[in-house]
Each structure stands twice: as structure tokens, then as C-alpha cells.
């Protein structure tokens, strides 16, 4: 049973909608750029943790212009720190996927004692000239599945839109807008100086990457390994979203890390 809470942040100017489910220690989950989807991975996590999954500003249906409240990355990080406090979470596990991984890493770098553990699933946030991150927002519709997934069948199922035309309009427009909202903080280059702040991350960290990630190449895992107390797990036969494409391998790796 997933409940919804609305948490006021930023002096009352920015309500953030948070999906909450499960029981146990708190776990903060930061979703990828296309928006929050309550998938089997989140369901799995909620079996052992109380999962708090905030919707990024602008990605909540009915409140698209919330994104215009936030101009700078440092404000965004402060907003998420406020959110954690307002939710009353004490040292939650923090898990972030892709853009959410960048956000999770920034949160941990700005507030080193905030997370008890940190899990980064193919995070954005760094740049290598020899392995440029693909430009997801500029990708054509036919290129998108290959950027995000290794297995085309998984891609087709994951990216399928509702059959009802009006529902498809709603879903597509929300996804496009959500990408634009996140893009505010990773366009044109997903590098806002995180490399210089990685040394501030003191939480035990797991970095998970799909071997065949065509959006953010797996070589970036080595860059995130610069985090002092970190471990890297590479998932075989997986693109950018290992928790969807290789659910068993990914959830096992995350479970193992969190119980130790």
C-alpha cells in the first residue's frame, strides 16, 4: 500500500509530494529524470524499509510549474535536506537512480552525516571527455530505448504508453515535462562540480552500474569509486536501469550491501 504525503519545503513555497510505503528503517529513494514509477525494486525495498520517494519539483501531475521555484543546484540540495528533516527521517538509507543518483551524491556531499548508507544506481554528475554521457533529452524517440536498455524487449515493455489516447497524451506530456524539469540541473553537461565534492562523502557507498549502459558509460563507476568507503558492483546484461533490467541481480547486490 503506497501512501502519499505532501511536505511543505522552502519556506512554504514548494510542496513536495512523497510516496511512502513499507515499514522499518527509513529509506529515501530519489528517482530518475523521467519521473517516479513505483516499480518492483521499490516494492522490494518497502518489504524491509519504510520507503520515502519524493517526486522531483515539477514532476507531480497538476503542479508542473513548481520547477520554477528552484533555480540553483545548491538550493535544490537544501530543499532535499529540508525534506528529510520535515519528514523526520533520522539517517535514512539514501538510494538514487541516474539523475536521482546525482542528487543523492550531492546530498551526501553537502551533508555527509545525513545518509546512513548511500546507493548510487548509474548516477549522473560527472563528465569524462573520453566517454561522454549521451544527450538523453536530445535523443530521438527511436534512439531512446537503446540508450536506456540493453534488452529491446525489456525496453519496449518499460517504455510502453497507455493505449487510451488521452491517457497516452497525459503520460507522454508528463514524462517529457519531467525530463525538462530534471534537465534544468544537468543540461547542457551533467557536471555541476560534483567531482570536486566527492571527497566529502563519508557514508558507506554502493555504486551499481549496468555493463552495457549506453547513456552513462560503465567507466563512470571507476570515477565514483573515488568515494572513500565505496564498493562498485557491475551488473551484466544490463543498460542504464539495472533495477528494471536485472532486478534479481540488482536487488541482491543492494540487499547484501545494506545488511552488512
Amino acid at each position: 500500500m503506497v501512501k502519499t504525503e505532501i511536505v511543505e519545503t522552502w519556506g512554504g513555497k514548494l510542496p513536495i509530494t512523497v510516496s511512502v510505503a513499507g515499514a522499518g528503517q527509513p529509506l529515501l529513494y530519489l528517482h530518475q529524470a523521467a519521473g517516479l514509477a513505483w516499480d518492483p525494486f521499490l516494492q522490494h525495498l518497502s518489504e524491509r524499509y519504510t520507503v520515502y520517494a519524493p517526486q522531483f519539483p515539477g514532476t507531480t501531475p497538476g503542479n508542473p510549474y513548481a520547477i520554477h521555484t528552484v533555480d540553483h543546484l545548491c538550493d535544490l540540495v537544501l530543499i532535499y535536506e529540508e525534506l528529510v528533516r520535515h519528514l523526520g527521517l533520522n539517517q535514512p538509507v539514501v538510494i538514487g537512480q541516474s539523475f536521482g543518483g546525482m542528487l543523492a551524491a550531492e546530498l551526501a556531499a553537502h551533508f555527509p552525516t545525513l545518509p546512513s548508507r548511500l546507493v548510487l544506481l548509474a548516477p549522473l554528475g560527472l563528465w569524462r571527455d573520453d566517454a561522454p554521457v549521451a544527450n538523453l533529452l536530445a535523443a530521438s524517440a527511436d534512439r531512446l530505448p537503446g540508450l536506456l536498455f540493453h534488452n529491446p524487449e525489456v525496453a519496449a515493455a518499460a517504455l510502453a504508453m497507455p493505449e487510451d489516447p488521452e491517457a497516452a497524451v497525459t503520460a507522454t506530456s508528463q514524462m517529457v515535462w519531467s525530463l525538462g524539469c530534471a534537465g534544468k540541473f544537468f543540461w547542457p553537461i551533467p557536471d555541476r562540480g560534483l567531482r570536486g565534492r566527492l571527497h566529502r562523502i563519508t557514508a558507506r557507498t554502493l555504486v551499481v552500474w549496468g555493463r552495457q549502459d549506453a547513456f552513462v558509460p560503465v567507466s563512470y563507476a571507476d570515477e565514483f569509486a573515488a568515494i572513500a568507503d565505496s564498493k562498485v558492483v557491475v551488473i551484466e546484461d544490463s543498460g542504464h536501469l539495472p533495477q528494471i533490467e536485472q532486478f534479481q541481480q540488482t536487488s541482491s547486490a543492494v540487499d547484501d550491501f545494506l545488511v552488512r
Binding site: 536530445a138 530521438s140 506530456s173 517529457v176 525530463l179 534537465g183
Partner: peptide, 22 residues
């Protein structure tokens, strides 16, 4: 000019995206 180059995500207001899709 490919369509996505004229309508990068966020470049068109969400209501405009809906109007164009319909």
C-alpha cells in the same frame, strides 16, 4: 530538422506539449 530538435523536453510548456500531441 528532426522533431526532437524543435521540441527538446522542457522547451515547450506542458500544456503546449499536450496540445501538440492531441
Amino acid at each position: 530538422i528532426p522533431p526532437q530538435m524543435l521540441a527538446l523536453p522542457g522547451g515547450i510548456d506542458i500544456r503546449g506539449v499536450q496540445a501538440l500531441l492531441r
